[in-house]
Design a protein around this nucleic acid. Structure first.
Length: 463
RNA sequence: GCGAGUUUAGCUCAGUUGGUUAGAGCGUCGGGUUGUGGUUCCGAAGGUCGUGGGUUCAAUCCCCAUAACUCGCCCCA
């Protein structure tokens, strides 16, 4: 055992060294206050907006009889690997091993999960099944406008209806959500296409093989990103010489230029998918959704959708892009060894929706959850707490200043919290049971009993 | 994975053709009012000019690298 005895001056030097080390640590090791790349912090004012968005979504889809479900954010990696392409699983997911050596993946979409849930109770669920969810998802990719790593997505799915009525309902729900957000007809366009129709045309009528079709679909999906000369050049290179001799590329261009079903080439015009599209567009028109139109170039990815697809486009010149969409797809239900179910659905992301609402100035001012802030004056804090409790029992959301805060400070706090009302409680008020309620936005003050105060606040809350 | 732009006070941004103590507005804190804020007046705190290296007598400024952010591309379930 060695005991070291320091002199006073040595101790003060040690203290200085200690302080210096702390200082250096603070400089070099200070934690970043930034949220993780591509993810957002929700401060109360942000969370309020999100609550508004979700509330409108929930109220709208529930009016159509959809029920909310939820599920874990983690799934076994196989669930995604089986369905999605290798590139997505390997490069765009958060995948890791749990402590038991199992590979798990944070969900990047809801389809595998909802398919698993429906398959598990395939026989006992009531059809038509109307389900929705607002899950958060993670994709490992570079953030850019309208795309982050973590986002929330309303998923709405209708299971068990084979006919076009299901597609109609899903598009109608999409439109109802836009309306519920106060969007006007001219702000967005609903573009509709049939994957079955284009597949019939390029495979059965033009006679393209599987590889040609896939390449072509992929190219059509991108055609609005290039000029027509470039596009037609690339289309030509997909067709083989004998197909080119039969003028097939020109037939394709005729097809793609159609702005309504009557413009389609004669060879495909009477196909049942064309008739279905026609019925669908008529149903939408009858339902007052006139801003829906046929767009033969709409593809939405490659393999996923099997029949009707639709996309809601923002008409604003600064944001002329697809906001969200959906269509009919097989899902993964068959993979779980049960009989498949017809599914039509869509997914609506919160980021693109927020962009839309901001750009069209549709984002409302959201009021704070707290109704009223109690400002106590003098040595009455305990008794003011009693009044606050009474108000809470009467249905108000009530906050109170810190026990040591001066009156001025309490008011500043209430104003900074953007509250509408402050309630002043001092000796005078406690004695008379008449309290001063102040409207912080107008500086107007009135003196009332608690009953009257509660009704004033509740009236404001409703408005 | 590729490319462009940005990074100076808590926030929004000036600025220095390389030269002593780097500025503004807003915000924050304290005071002029012991039962009342948002308007006014006075005062204060707050910056290794993103990080590391190089050139130079001297770098916040020039060069290189790197990170973060923003916007595109790729991809998009």
């Amino acid at each position: 055992m060695i005991t070291v005895i320091y002199s006073d001056s040595q101790l003060s030097i040690l203290k200085l060294i200690h302080l210096y080390i702390q200082y250096v640590l603070r400089l070099t090791m200070a934690l970043s206050t930034q949220p993780y790349k591509g993810a957002r912090d929700y401060y109360p004012e942000d969370k309020r907006l999100q609550k508004y968005l979700f509330k409108v979504m929930r109220e709208t889809v529930e009016r159509f009889g959809y029920e909310e479900y939820d599920a874990p954010i983690l799934e076994p990696t196989e669930l995604f690997a089986s369905k999605t392409s290798d590139e997505i699983v390997n490069e765009q997911t958060y995948t890791f091993e749990d402590r038991g050596g199992r590979s798990v993946t944070i969900r990047t979409e809801m389809t595998p999960t909802v398919s698993r849930m429906v398959a598990a109770k395939r026989q006992e669920l009531p059809y038509p099944l109307r389900w929705y969810s607002i899950p958060n998802m993670w994709r490992y990719e570079r953030p850019q406008r309208g795309r982050l790593r973590e986002f929330w997505q309303l998923n709405v799915d209708l299971f068990g209806i084979k006919g076009i009525e299901a597609d109609f309902e899903i598009i109608q729900v999409s439109d109802a959500i836009m309306k519920a957000f106060k969007a006007k007809r001219d702000m967005y366009t609903i573009k509709i296409n049939s994957r079955k129709l284009i597949n019939t045309f390029i495979k059965d009528i033009l006679g393209l093989d599987e590889v040609q079709s896939t390449t072509l679909i992929r190219l059509i999906d991108k055609m609005h990103k290039m000029d027509f000369v470039q596009f037609s050049g690339q289309v030509d290179s997909i067709f083989n010489p004998s197909q080119r001799e039969k003028n097939e590329p020109e037939m394709l261009f005729e097809y793609l230029k159609a702005t309504n079903l009557d413009d389609l080439p004669e060879s495909i015009k009477d196909h049942e998918s064309a008739k279905e599209l026609d019925t669908l567009l008529q149903m939408l028109g009858t339902a007052g959704i006139q801003n829906s139109e046929f767009d033969p170039t709409l593809m939405r990815g490659f393999d996923y959708y099997t029949d009707i697809v639709f996309e809601v486009f923002d008409n604003h010149p600064d944001n002329n892009r697809s906001m969200f969409g959906g269509g009919r797809y097989e899902g993964l239900i068959g993979m779980f060894g049960v009989e498949p179910v017809p599914i039509v659905g869509f997914g609506m992301g919160d980021v693109t929706l927020s962009n839309f609402l901001e750009l069209h100035e549709l984002m409302p001012e959201i009021t704070v959850e707290t109704d009223i802030f109690v400002v106590f004056i003098g040595d009455v804090y305990q008794r003011a707490l009693g009044v606050a409790s009474e108000l809470r029992q009467m249905g108000l959301n009530v906050a109170i200043g810190g026990p040591d805060q001066k009156t001025e400070k309490q008011i500043k706090t209430a104003v900074k919290k953007q509250l509408k009302y402050a309630l002043f409680i001092g000796e005078k008020e406690l004695t008379s049971e008449q309290y001063v309620i102040k409207d912080l936005t107008t500086s107007n003050e009135e003196t009332h009993g608690l009953e009257r105060i509660v009704s004033i606040v509740k009236d404001y809350r409703k408005g």
